[in-house]
Simulated scan of single mutants.
Amino acid sequence: MLQTKIAANAEALRRWLSKAEVVLGNHSDRLNAINIFPVADGDTGTNLYLTIRAAAQSASENPTSDVGELLAGAGQAAMEEARGNSGTLLSVFLAALAEPLRGTTRLTGPLLAAALQRAEIRCWSALSEPVEGTMLSVIAAVSRAASAAHGAQHDDSNHGLAATLEAIVEEALAAVVRTEAQLGALESAHIVDAGAVGFLLIMDTLRASALGEGLQPELLDGLHGFNVQDPHLHLDHIDEGVEVMCTINLSPLDAATLRLKLDELGDSVIMSAVTEVEGGYRWRVHAHVPDGDAALELIRELGEPMNVTMTELAGPPEHTHGG
């Protein structure tokens, strides 16, 4: 590997997000096809693509050389446009990744390890009931791999960064393979988790963008359910209910109250702070509930939601309420 090719500055991260947008767009159909958990709504690939597209657009328009500032803006843009469980979790990941990187113009192995640790903590805490065998498992795996590589290299060199990036992709792939045995629904269908595969692709685009290399086309070879001739397995599963998403300004106490009430009403609850506002934070809220109108009524008891979408988990395209 030629170290002169290695670049991990803000421009490299812009390339990463742009390349991830293209890659997720190219693979969205197969990701949708194997999307059966937590609900078989067949949109994980689309949700990841639309979410990363918002992040990539933000990064392309942000002239900063500060990699933390760049990713913070990208994460916030992604969170405002996040779609579904997978997109919401990806936006939380990007925003958290930025926190230890503020004030630096170059990504290093130790910094990447610290950023991935922060992202792991934030992503697992954003969900009311985190589950193994999902994108969360891959996030945890890459965090561990980066920390181990950092411990072995313990330097800020290009070589140390390359070793860290290669280690996280290798461990991400292993974690994706493990998802099939970690969730009963996946094991029964003989497939790996769709969100986990999408996150693996995102990690490989980071590696490729920083190291000046191409993507690894063989990365997905042999993953169960990922052959192009395989059927859209999600069509064999029927899920009822509504996915509700919105943005709302709440104090930390009111946010905790809302999370509790949504947990009682439904599941797949994800809440993450987007940005600080007067009296609290702007929160991105996601939940699967039996009755979308009942969930909105509950939310409005605590504040006025914005950017509201309600999508049938198995049915017609989403409809949007308000701005």
Rank of each mutant, 00 (worst) to 15 (best):
A140W: 04
E166I: 06
L173N: 00
V177K: 15
D156W: 04
A148D: 14
V138Q: 08
V192N: 04
V176G: 07
L173E: 05
A145G: 05
A145I: 10
L183P: 01
I168S: 01
H150S: 14
D155R: 11
E166T: 11
D193T: 06
H150V: 03
A146K: 02
E132T: 06
A148P: 00
E170V: 11
L136G: 14
T134I: 09
H154N: 15
A172W: 04
A163D: 10
A146Y: 02
A152S: 13
S157M: 09
A174T: 13
A181E: 13
G151Y: 04
E187K: 14
I191D: 07
H190D: 10
S143P: 09
G133E: 04
V192R: 06
A149Y: 01
L161N: 05
S157I: 09
V176N: 09
G151F: 08
Q153S: 14
V142R: 03
G160K: 00
G160D: 09
T134K: 06
H150T: 10
V169L: 11
V177D: 12
H159T: 11
A141V: 04
S143G: 15
A167P: 02
D156E: 15
S188P: 00
A148I: 10
S188T: 12
Q153R: 15
A146Q: 04
S137G: 14
V142I: 15
I168H: 03
H190Q: 14
Q153M: 13
S157Y: 05
M135W: 05
S147I: 03
D193G: 05
L165M: 11
A185R: 15
V177Q: 14
V142Q: 03
S157D: 08
N158E: 09
H190W: 01
E132D: 14
A152L: 12
T164W: 02
S157Q: 10
D193R: 02
A141N: 06
A181S: 14
S147H: 06
A175K: 01
R178H: 13
T164L: 11
L173P: 00
A167Y: 02
L186I: 06
G184C: 09
M135F: 09
A167D: 05
I139G: 02
S147D: 05
A162M: 11
A148F: 01
T164I: 05
H150W: 07
E166D: 13
L165S: 11
A175I: 07
I191L: 14
H154W: 03
S188C: 00
A140H: 11
G133L: 06
A141P: 03
A140F: 03
A172Q: 03
E187R: 14
A175E: 04
G151C: 08
R178K: 15
A175Y: 02
V192E: 09
L165Q: 12
V192T: 12
A140N: 08
H150I: 00
V169R: 10
V192C: 12
A185Y: 01
R144K: 15
D193E: 15
T164D: 04
Q182L: 15
V142C: 11
A141E: 10
N158A: 12
Q153C: 11
V142T: 14
A162W: 03
G184H: 12
